[in-house]
Design a protein around this nucleic acid. Sequence first.
DNA 1: TTACTAAAACTAATGCTATTAGTTTTAGTC
DNA 2: GACTAAAACTAATAGCATTAGTTTTAGTAA
Lengths: 189, 189
Amino acid sequence: MAKKGLDSKIIISTAAQLVEEKGYDHFSLNELALKLGVKTASLYNHIEGIQEVNSKVSHLAVSRLHLILEESIARKERDEALMSLTMAYRDFAKKNPELYKAVIKLPSSEDDQLKESGAQVVEPIIAILRKYALNEVDMIHFSRALRSAIHGFVEMEEAGFFRRHDANIDISYEKMIKGYILILNSYNN
Amino acid sequence: MAKKGLDSKIIISTAAQLVEEKGYDHFSLNELALKLGVKTASLYNHIEGIQEVNSKVSHLAVSRLHLILEESIARKERDEALMSLTMAYRDFAKKNPELYKAVIKLPSSEDDQLKESGAQVVEPIIAILRKYALNEVDMIHFSRALRSAIHGFVEMEEAGFFRRHDANIDISYEKMIKGYILILNSYNN
DNA sequence: TTACTAAAACTAATGCTATTAGTTTTAGTC
DNA sequence: GACTAAAACTAATAGCATTAGTTTTAGTAA
């Protein structure tokens, strides 16, 4: 019963690990406590409840995605940067499918947090778009469409919606991105 | 304790109603039984378990969406049909946000069922695309991109990701769809 | 070195959840 | 009117999140 040196950070990163191992929908505080070598009730010395854990796991997921997106566009710009970012995004979702599910679940309650976290994914996209000749409003319209396409694609792919045909799925994705790049370049320059 | 005349159909449609009322994540067999005026255990005379209910609710959701998509393209074709279908899709998701969540959850276990249900949404889209000059493979690539964009958009909108700016969200959607129509028409004709 | 305190662990209990086993009632048929 | 199978029931189990109350620990002050 010695103090285990638990803190919120260890709890959340272990939770994220558990989410990836057992699946987002099968995460439980019991298993989390077990993995931490602690009784379930003891977790409540460090957390408010399970929804706080879920929320923080979502923020962790977004942070990791953000990091990867930033890395993907380092020393790149325009078409090359956009292709690199979108590939890195899908790669992240494929390597961390269960954790990625947490990204879309950022609880809509805590609105300010949501804004900040949402911004983490938009930010590198906007950074790329600034190198094209779009006005501010069109940039937002375009970024929404692009994020929709990327997120929609990786989620539907993971859910198994794109299994049916013999059309190669990597090519589908690449063609989709190239379509966006085409539209982007048509704005002028 | 008279027989209540329960059957799978009534159970599933009531479940769908409950999902919409209480939210997809707060659905329970207890509340379902309560709403049907029956004890929870009695449900098991008609269903295997909760995952069967979830699965069938998903199929119901897809069927309803399919119906609406078919209606939306009746007596229309090409650009007009595509615009109508995509607007109807988003409309459905906005009017039935909780039920729409069931659409993406078609359990990946039952593969054959999944193929069939997935097909229900692709089918009317493919029907429209046949009027354009795409070959079979490009049609599949394009339909994947389009479905990704539509689904991604409505899900991210519902999750609250598009709240930040003053760019009008309806216009974002319309511009996105018009982008796809532009690409589609560029294939030739 | 001892006493005190607050944090962090614990045990135990509550009320949800889905599910199963066994029992009683009902509706329809022979 | 008796029989049968379906469909309701009651009761119990196991797992879940959460809360209250208790004990232990680590660190500080006397």
